[in-house]
């Protein structure tokens, strides 16, 4: 089943031209998709449309087959969770558990169920021991994990991360990516990872490259990164590991495109004395 389906979707912010142009795009249930693109390529617009925070000028958006309209917005948002960029502007409450409870309270769950949802969500992001901690004293990565838990408490089937790692340090980024990967593998949640860290895209099933409001490339990450020249025209840089592989290949070491450190080391070791 298709978790998300965009058909001929256009959107513009006033007169400054189209943010999205006749976009056709879909995500299968259970998929882990990365969306890449330079700043202003339309990736965040796409995320906001999928959650009904923006309304398309033209075209249709379907979530699990259901057409997104003004009327079913509330129900669609239960299915599609979104985590934003800034770890400091998403929490409503000061304490971790109060904030995680927020979404569950909004949809009118009873107290026992909210408690169970908090348990589940905090465990899923590995923050169960911080249940009564003050959010402002957590690290950036922890704050974002709380934000993810707040979304998880609504038991969404799709999770969108709108550059949620952009403001974190490497440790925080790693925490988030691990959590998201686990959610995808163990909970079967469909994940849309919007990022400009090329390394993060390597973990996904599929990478989508956007440029000026259009999808210009769509393939397995390794295949995408093989098309170096094309990526450069979209103002994207290759992951460093890919740059290195290219350099080695030019020099005559036939490394494959596994883009994984241990494999690459193995391949190099074979050809080097």
């Amino acid at each position: 089943m298709k978790a998300l389906e965009f058909s001929d979707v256009s959107f513009s912010y006033g007169e400054e031209g189209f943010a999205l142009k006749k976009l056709n795009f879909s995500v299968e249930e259970g998929e882990f998709v990365a969306i890449l693109g330079h700043n202003g390529s339309g990736k965040s617009t796409l995320a906001r449309l999928a959650d009904g925070l923006l309304t398309a000028d033209e075209g249709e958006i379907r979530v699990f087959g259901e057409l997104l309209t003004e009327k079913n917005l509330f129900d669609i948002r239960k299915d599609v969770g979104i985590v934003f960029q800034n770890p400091d502007s998403q929490a409503v409450a000061s304490l971790v558990e109060d904030d995680v409870a927020f979404g569950a309270e909004n949809v009118g769950l009873e107290r026992g169920e909210i408690g169970r949802r908090i348990d589940f969500a905090l465990r899923a992001v590995g923050m169960e021991s911080y249940r009564t901690a003050t959010i402002s004293r957590l690290s950036g990565g922890q704050k974002q994990r709380v934000a993810i838990a707040g979304v998880l408490a609504l038991k969404p089937r799709v999770m969108i991360l709108d550059e949620s790692t952009a403001m974190l340090d490497p440790r925080g980024r790693k925490e988030i990516i691990e959590v998201v990967r686990k959610l995808n593998e163990e909970e079967g949640i469909t994940v849309l990872l919007i990022t400009h860290f090329m390394e993060e895209a390597l973990l996904c099933h599929r990478a989508v490259v956007m440029n000026r409001g259009e999808i210009v490339m769509q393939d397995a990450p390794a295949n995408i990164f093989r098309r170096r020249e094309e990526l450069l025209t979209y103002n994207l840089a290759l992951p460093r590991i890919e740059v290195l592989c290219n350099r080695l290949r030019e020099g005559g070491i036939p490394v494959t495109d596994a883009l994984e450190i241990e494999t690459l080391a193995e391949e190099i070791a074979k050809c080097v004395s």
Partner: peptide
Amino acid sequence: LTLALKKRGVEIDSDFTLEDFAEKVLARRR
């Protein structure tokens, strides 16, 4: 990578820039 290679018995002594690392690896190529 230097660490992963060391485990496999290959010592690469570079200044850890990509350029130099690739060069040192290629120099050892057979």
